[in-house]
């Protein structure tokens, strides 16, 4: 648990939005991208590129995210 508190926010993972773990908060991912469902029924980002938004569970604003997901660790194994 101490590991998540101190490093959880930087754990590599597939999400396109950042996670918010800290010693005082166990909040997970903090946002979404918006998409449209294709004729096949699959969800795809509007305009073909992911535009992500982040916010909090309080009164904070919804902002376009500048989060750049770190590259996947080698072979998909924890680093």
């Amino acid at each position: 648990m101490e590991a998540i508190d101190s490093k959880g926010a930087t754990f590599a993972n597939s999400a396109l939005v950042p996670a918010g773990y800290s010693k005082t908060s166990h909040v997970g991912l903090t946002g979404y991208w918006v998409g449209k469902y294709a004729p096949t029924g699959d969800l795809a980002p509007i305009g073909g590129t992911y535009v992500t938004y982040t916010t909090d569970s309080g009164s904070g604003a919804v902002v376009k995210s500048t989060y750049k997901r770190p590259a996947m660790p080698a072979k998909g194994l924890p680093n």
């Binding site: 597939s14 999400a15 396109l16 939005v17 991912l29 946002g31 979404y32 991208w33 918006v34 998409g35 449209k36 469902y37 294709a38 004729p39 096949t40 029924g41 699959d42 969800l43 795809a44 980002p45 992911y50």
Partner: peptide, 15 residues
């Protein structure tokens, strides 16, 4: 599947 077409959706992880 067609019923879903053009519906707006949200996800934190890639498509």
């Amino acid at each position: 599947a067609g019923v879903l077409y053009n519906a707006i959706g949200f996800s934190p992880v890639p498509a």
